[in-house]
Design a protein around this nucleic acid. Sequence first.
DNA 1: TCGTATTTTCAGAAATGTCTGAAAATTCGG
DNA 2: CCGAATTTTCAGACATTTCTGAAAATACGA
Lengths: 193, 193
Amino acid sequence: MSVPPLCEAFVLHFGEMGSRWGINRTVGQIYAVLFIAERPLCADDIVDRLGISRSNVSMGLKELQSWNLLRQRSIPGDRREFFHTPDDIYAIVRTLVDERKKREIDPTLSVLRELLMRSPESESERHAQERMREMHDLIELLTSWYADVQKLETERLIQLLSLGSRIVKVLDMKDRLFALPGGKRSANPEKGN
Amino acid sequence: MSVPPLCEAFVLHFGEMGSRWGINRTVGQIYAVLFIAERPLCADDIVDRLGISRSNVSMGLKELQSWNLLRQRSIPGDRREFFHTPDDIYAIVRTLVDERKKREIDPTLSVLRELLMRSPESESERHAQERMREMHDLIELLTSWYADVQKLETERLIQLLSLGSRIVKVLDMKDRLFALPGGKRSANPEKGN
DNA sequence: TCGTATTTTCAGAAATGTCTGAAAATTCGG
DNA sequence: CCGAATTTTCAGACATTTCTGAAAATACGA
C-alpha cells in the first residue's frame, strides 16, 4: 500500500470494519481511499494506492456505485473516469442509512406483512404471529420516524441531535402549556399540525 | 426443518437477513426460532426444528449470548438449559443497537481519535485529517444523541418517535417563547436544564 | 466416587466469498 | 471504420467462514 502512514492506518481500519458490515475488506478500503483523497481518483490511482488488481478495483467501484456512495467526474480530453465521495459527510451518512434500510429493513417488513395476512393453523402459529406483529409494529414506528427526520435540513437535524434527551423537557413544557383548564390534557394536541 | 409453514418462512427469512448483518445464517435462524417459540427451548429442541448439528447449535447459542440477546432458564430436576428471548421487543432492539455500536462504531471512534492526535507530515495527510475530523465529529454527535435517548423509558421514547419531524414545530414554538424582547434569541436557552 | 446426561471443543470437510489475469467489450479520437 | 486506451467480465485459484462428527469436558444425581 503506497499511501502516507496516517492514511494507511485509516484505510486499513476501514477495511477491517468493511468486513463487519456487509461490504468486504477491499470495498471498504477503496471507499476510505476516496474519502480522504484530495482530488477525484481514477481506477489506476486506486490500484497504485492499495496494491490490488485492476479488476478488483473495477468490481469494488461497481459495488460502491450500487450503494449510491460515489460521485463521478470526467476530465475533458481524458478518457478515464474519476471518482470521489460527496463533500458533505451528512449526505454520505444519509445515503448509507437509506441503502441499509432498503436492503435490511424493507425486505423484512414486507415478509412480515405477508406472514401477518395468513391465517394461523395452530396455536403455535397464532403465537408466532403475535410476536411478528410486535416486531412489525416496532419496525414501522422506527422507519416512519426516520423517514420523517430524513426530510429535515442538516442544520435542523444537528439542532435536534444536539438537544438529545433534553427534548423531553421541551415536550413537558409544551404539554403544560396546552393542558386544558380542568387539568386533563388533550390526547394529542400536535397531531393536527 | 420441522416447524409449521408460517414459522418456517419467518425463520428462513431471518437466516437470509442474518448473513446481510454480521451474524451468519444459522445464528439468525436460531434467534428466529427462539423469538417465536411459545416456551423456552433447549439445544436439542433447536436441533429438531432446524435440522442442523448439535455442535452448530452450541456455537450459535454462544454467539447469541455474546450479543446479550438471550435469557436462560433451568427447570429443577432437568439438567438441560432452556433459552428464550426477552419478552419486550424494545429491550431486544436496545441491546442490538448497543452491541452493534460497541462492535462497529466504538473501535472506529477510537482509531479516529488516535489518528487525529498525530501531526500531519504532508499536505495530503493534513487534508486526510480534516476529513477524519468531520467523520469523528459526526459520529460523536450521533452516538451522544443515542446515549442520551437510550436512557428514556420506553413510553417516552414512543412518544418522541411518534412525533417524528413535528418535533421541530415544538422547538420553534419554544424558541419564540424564549426569544429575548429585543428580538435576538439566546444562543442555547435549554442548555442549563 | 462413579456413571450418565449434557455441553463444549476442535480438526478437517464442505460451502461460500474474494481476487486475479486474460480475454472480451466499450469508448472515442482520428 | 480503425486502433489505442480504458473498463468490464469471468473462470478458476486462493482464502475465509461455516458446519459436522467424534472426542473431551462438565455437571450432577445416586
